[in-house]
């Protein structure tokens, strides 16, 4: 797969996650799309704002509601060379969360600086 796309166009993709996991299918669909973008060797970053920060909460146990625990997959993103995970500090604080509550290492960004991140991208995909 890698060889097939060598020399192809590489764009900067930012996936914006704004919804809590499990209640709707948005979070899982976003994650699958992130993996596909990465498998095609695109330059992929992910931003978690608003309820999207709940997707990275440690200790998720969705088995009781018969949902796959895809939060574990966020730990695999590094192996897919998706190393840029951004989380908005204000969204965390509003929800009583801090960086210690998250299951992966992230880079914190402020609400006022989100547009600077967006400005660097070729494509924005919002979920």
């Amino acid at each position: 797969m890698e060889d097939e796309y060598e020399g192809g166009v590489v764009k900067k993709f930012l996936y914006v996650n704004r919804r809590a996991p499990h209640g709707t299918v948005y979070a899982l669909e976003s994650l699958e799309t992130v993996l596909i973008g990465a498998a095609f060797d695109q330059d992929v970053s992910v931003l978690f704002i608003d309820d999207g920060v709940f997707q990275l909460k440690k200790q998720q146990q969705p088995e009781g509601i018969e949902v796959k625990n895809f939060s574990k997959t966020f730990r695999a993103l590094e192996m897919y060379d998706v190393e840029q995970l951004f989380v908005e500090s204000e969204s965390l604080a509003e929800r009583g969360l801090s960086e210690d509550d998250l299951l992966v290492d992230v880079e914190l960004v402020s609400r006022a600086s989100v547009h600077e991140l967006v400005d660097q991208q070729d494509v924005i995909l919002s979920f």
Partner: peptide, 10 residues
Amino acid sequence: EYQIAPAVRV
């Protein structure tokens, strides 16, 4: 561990 089947490169 990751709830995902890895792509070949990974």
